[in-house]
Computed example of a mutant assay.
Amino acid sequence: MKYFKFSYIAILVFLSQILFGQTLSSNLSNTTLALGEVGEYKLKIDNLQAKDVVAAPKNELLPFHFEVVSDSISKQQNEYFRVVKFQVFEEGTFKIPALDIKIGDQIQKTIPYEIEVINTAKKDDVINDIMKNKQVDLGIKDYWELYKFYILAALVVIGIIFLIVYYIKYGRKVKGSPKVLTNQTLKDLDRLKKKNYIQNGNYRMYYVELIDITREFLTKQYKIPANVLLTDDLIDYMKGSNIISEQNEKVIEEIFQRGDLVKFAKTIPNSDMMEKDFNDIKTMVQRSTKDVEAEQLRTMN
């Protein structure tokens, strides 16, 4: 009776594996290949039941000796099929080890393979030319066809070098001139205006972006570390350096201090105040070129 019961359970387990388990199989097209010959490694999972399959990424399934030609993966609800075409360019015996394939929560292994790669060419083989070499006289056109790509490449390199030298000598000066920086900042302020923060009452984002634009401008126009200094430290730095006029200095101090209060929710500005601060910063930016020109004259003297 016990034997019958054990046999019954074993049969049930066996049937459940057949009916509900996943079947992993692999196949190798040939265990002997010539150098550079294309071989195929196939991987198949039946009765997948829509489970996830985790294997090596595409083009990385086989060891590094195998040069992958193509790696195609097809996955349906009950079947996973992968075909890897490969070549080997070294003589010898190479192994495809047992690969771990995760199916759902279970890990299954493939069958390991060995592949022998041989050189089909013989050492004593003689390679004969089909016809004897002929001496051909080349003209200017022929030399141009032979070397035109090298000549064009050399001209491109010379052109790039010329552009780099020109940019270093002239380009950076023009781009970094006070007027160019002023115009760029005015464009940034116009973009801020178009976001309608004032009309929507979004005063916090308005002051955050207004002060960020101003800090970036001060850093580039006046060459002061405005983008890393706290408000109080920046004000002390400006007063100690005398780079910025008192008029512009006063505008920056008032608006930056108000901006800090707004960011920490200690004050709520009205729309008139926000408009005034915007116009004051814009005017300060426009006046800045005079500060820079005065500093340049002072340095020269």
Rank of each mutant, 00 (worst) to 15 (best):
E40L: 15
K42F: 12
K42G: 15
L43D: 10
L43T: 08
L43M: 10
K44C: 14
K44T: 14
K44R: 14
K44F: 12
K44Y: 11
I45W: 06
I45C: 09
D46W: 08
D46Q: 15
D46H: 13
D46Y: 11
N47E: 05
N47Y: 06
N47S: 10
L48V: 04
L48G: 09
L48Y: 03
L48M: 08
L48P: 04
Q49I: 05
Q49D: 15
A50G: 07
K51Q: 12
K51F: 03
K51R: 11
V53N: 03
V53L: 01
V53F: 01
V54D: 08
V54Y: 04
V54W: 03
V54H: 05
A55T: 07
A55Q: 06
A55V: 09
A55I: 09
P57R: 02
P57V: 00
P57L: 02
P57Y: 02
P57S: 05
K58E: 09
K58Q: 14
N59Q: 05
N59I: 00
E60N: 09
E60C: 04
L61T: 03
L62Y: 01
L62S: 05
L62P: 00
F64C: 07
F64E: 12
F64K: 13
F64G: 10
H65F: 13
H65S: 14
H65A: 14
F66T: 01
F66G: 05
E67S: 15
V68R: 05
V68I: 11
V68S: 09
V68E: 06
V69P: 02
